[in-house]
Measured scan of single mutants.
Amino acid sequence: GKELVLALYDYQEKSPREVTMKKGDILTLLNSTNKDWWKVEVNDRQGFVPAAYVKKL
């Protein structure tokens, strides 16, 4: 099944490779191999968020 993460904080994208999320959002985790930036999918968009801003559910 898909792995989900919870947004712990708001995050505003700073580049086209990133995505914006709001605290409390549930996101689909696509890739967590990089310890600093995790790739997630939110609202049919894929991009990176800081790993410290999310936690695995």
Rank of each mutant, 00 (worst) to 15 (best):
M21V: 10
F48K: 03
S15C: 11
K2C: 14
S32V: 07
T28N: 08
L29C: 07
T33E: 15
V42M: 14
A7I: 02
K14V: 09
T20A: 07
R45S: 07
P50M: 03
G1R: 13
W37F: 06
Y53E: 03
P16A: 13
W38D: 00
D44N: 13
M21A: 02
N34R: 09
P16K: 10
Q46V: 14
Y11G: 00
K23D: 02
E41Q: 14
Y53F: 13
K55P: 02
Q46K: 11
Q12P: 06
E3S: 11
R45L: 07
T28W: 11
L6I: 15
R45N: 06
L30N: 02
E3R: 11
V19K: 02
G47N: 01
K56M: 12
E18S: 07
N34H: 11
K23N: 04
D10G: 06
K39F: 15
R45A: 06
W38M: 04
E18T: 08
N31Y: 06
V42N: 15
K2L: 13
N43A: 13
L57R: 03
D44I: 06
L8H: 03
S32I: 06
Q46F: 08
P50A: 02
V40E: 00
Y11K: 00
S32K: 07
A51I: 03
G1F: 15
N43L: 12
I26Y: 07
G1L: 13
K56H: 09
A52H: 13
N43G: 15
K22L: 09
S32W: 09
K56E: 08
D36W: 15
K2F: 13
Y9P: 00
W37P: 00
G24C: 09
G1E: 12
R45G: 05
G1T: 15
R45H: 07
N34W: 07
V54Q: 00
R45M: 07
P50D: 02
A51W: 02
D44Y: 09
T33R: 10
K22W: 09
F48Y: 15
T33A: 13
A7Y: 02
V42F: 15
L30S: 03
Q12K: 14
E41F: 06
G1N: 13
D10H: 05
V42L: 15
W37Y: 07
Q46W: 09
V49W: 01
L8A: 04
L4T: 08
K2S: 10
Q12F: 15
L8D: 02
A51Y: 02
P50K: 04
L57P: 03
Y9I: 10
P16L: 09
E3H: 11
N31D: 15
W37L: 04
Q46I: 14
A7G: 03
T28D: 05
V19R: 02
K56D: 05
L4I: 09
D36C: 13
L27T: 01
E13Q: 14
D25G: 05
E3C: 15
I26N: 03
A51D: 02
L27F: 06
Y11L: 01
P50H: 02
V5W: 07
N31S: 13
Y11M: 01
